[in-house]
Structure formats: structure tokens, C-alpha cells
């Protein structure tokens, strides 16, 4: 083997920050113990005052956006939060939570386990940023024309089996149009704070319906996040947060049951086929 001369290992002496900086949260030290905070403030507002005067949705919006929402913004976010609160017991992320629950995994691990699966790019948080960017890119186009053009140009990409996501946030589900996302979007689109993304998505989805394609839940969430002014990179985490209650509820429901309370595929129905 060739003998090579190796570069001597030396530090680049990168300059790292002396302190962690944040614009979100201020902890005011107490007089006697610099590790103990006497007051907490979120974007300048005292936490105790926020607890007494504001809703959880107000606080949620403030935390991420830096200011309290208008009444219309709060209404839109709150209705989305209700709509997304439970992916349902058939969703793979919920099933991961239930599996952890019935398997007697530590309760504190149920949410991280299921949220990790919810991070997936297929109907999960991993699809939200792409959907936000897709709608931002096309929002000035006529959604019907864009849909028709994509259906024509991408027709050959439709897989012979399985679902087709023609664009991030839009596709078929179990071979057809998923109905609940469309219902959620229709309700949300009527709210005053609903904006151009949701409106564009409604038109795009409708134009796709003729090919058994429509809104996916991640697309609806992406449109609302965009209309509320969230940056696309926040989309994945926000989606996970909003779905988390349902994941935990289903996981804990199974945690109190015997391990036999969920199906375990029989040997007869378990087939090894290396081909």
C-alpha cells in the first residue's frame, strides 16, 4: 500500500459563542440564588400574567411568533389544533405508541417513540416543510392550471401500485381521495384568518380530485402554518406537537392492558419469502 504523508491535526480555532442566546425566554434571577429564577417572561410578558389572562393557544402562538395572535389568528390555529389532535388508531405513529404501551415500555418513552415515527416523510411531519415550500412556490399560479399541467407532465410517474403523492401535501390515500383532510380544509378555509395558501390548496386539491387525488392531512397543516406566517422549517415540529396528544392518549390506553390485548400475527399468517 502506498505510504502517504498525512496532514498534521491542528485546531481551526473556530470562535464559538460564550453564551447561549435567546429571544424567546427570560429568566430573572432571584436575589439569593443565581440558579433560581424569580420570574419567567416569554417575549417580554410575565408567565404568571399569561397564565391568568391568556389561553394555551395564545401562549403557543406567542412562543413561536413573538407576539400574541389576533382573535382571527387564534381561531384558525385553535381549530387546526383540534383537527389534528389525533391521527387516529390506524396511523403508523399511533400504532407505534400503542405498541409501546401494550409492550409496557416506560410511559415517558411512549411519546418520543411515536413522535419519531411521526417524523416520517410519508403522511408525517417530514412531509410538512416540503408542502409549505411547494405551495409558497406556486401560490401565484392558477391552481387549476398547475394541477392540470402536473397531472399531464407527471402522469408517467404514477406508481403501478400504491399511492401517488403528486406533490408534497397532496396525493391519494389507500387508492382514493382522503375525505377528512378535505373536510378539515373546507372548514378552515372559511375562517377570516385563512389566507392565500389554504385558498390555493383548495383549488389545487379540487382540480386533482378527478384523478383520485386530493389534500393530505400534512398538506392542510402546511397551508395553515404558512397562512399563519410560520417558516417552513418549523412545519415538521409543529405538526408533531399538534398530533402528540392523540399519540399519547392511544399509547396510554393500551399501557393499562395485558400484552395479549393487541393482535400478535400467528405463525400461520407469518410468511418468510426471500424472493
Amino acid at each position: 500500500m502506498e505510504v502517504r504523508k498525512h496532514q498534521k491535526v491542528t485546531s481551526r480555532n473556530d470562535v464559538f459563542a460564550d453564551k447561549i442566546t435567546t429571544r424567546i425566554w427570560e429568566e430573572v434571577p432571584s436575589e439569593n440564588n443565581p440558579y433560581i429564577a424569580s420570574n419567567n417572561r416569554c417575549h417580554g410578558y410575565d408567565l404568571i400574567e399569561l397564565m391568568q389572562q391568556k389561553s394555551y393557544v395564545d401562549m403557543f402562538y406567542l412562543l413561536f411568533r413573538g407576539n400574541l395572535p389576533s382573535l382571527d389568528e387564534r381561531q384558525l390555529l385553535e381549530q387546526l389544533m383540534v383537527g389534528l389532535i389525533n391521527p387516529g388508531p390506524r396511523h403508523p405513529a399511533t400504532r407505534a405508541a400503542m405498541n409501546a404501551g401494550v409492550g409496557k415500555s416506560d410511559p415517558q418513552n411512549i411519546l418520543p417513540i411515536s413522535l419519531t415515527i411521526m417524523g416520517g416523510e410519508y403522511l408525517g411531519a417530514g412531509a410538512v416543510e416540503g408542502a409549505m415550500r411547494f405551495m409558497r412556490k406556486h401560490r401565484r399560479e392558477n391552481p387549476v392550471e398547475t394541477a392540470d399541467a402536473m397531472l399531464t407532465e407527471l402522469a408517467e410517474q404514477r406508481p403501478k401500485e400504491g399511492d401517488w403523492h403528486i406533490a408534497p401535501g397532496f396525493g391519494s390515500h389507500f387508492g382514493g381521495v382522503d375525505l377528512m383532510p378535505s373536510k378539515l380544509a373546507a372548514v378552515l378555509a372559511r375562517l377570516p384568518a385563512s389566507g392565500s395558501m389554504l385558498d390555493w390548496g383548495m383549488g389545487f386539491s379540487s382540480a386533482l380530485n378527478k384523478k383520485e387525488i386530493g389534500w393530505l392531512t400534512v398538506g392542510v397543516a402546511a397551508a395553515v402554518f404558512a397562512d399563519l406566517g410560520f417558516h417552513p422549517r418549523y412545519g415538521a415540529g409543529l405538526f408533531q406537537l399538534l398530533c402528540a396528544p392523540g399519540l399519547l392518549a392511544h399509547g396510554m390506553e393500551q399501557a393499562n392492558k395485558p400484552i395479549t390485548a393487541m393482535p400478535f400475527v400467528s405463525d400461520k399468517a407469518y410468511v418468510i419469502d426471500y424472493e
Partner: peptide, 18 residues
């Protein structure tokens, strides 16, 4: 790496009331 309150450099909005 324990942190005192002042070890975090808060650069956000000053105290304000609702």
C-alpha cells in the same frame, strides 16, 4: 454544565405588560 439565569444571554423584547 449548570447554568445560572444570567448565563443565558436574553436578547428579546424587554418586560411588557398584557
Amino acid at each position: 454544565l449548570p447554568l445560572k439565569c444570567d448565563d443565558i444571554d436574553f436578547q428579546g423584547k424587554p418586560h411588557r405588560t398584557l
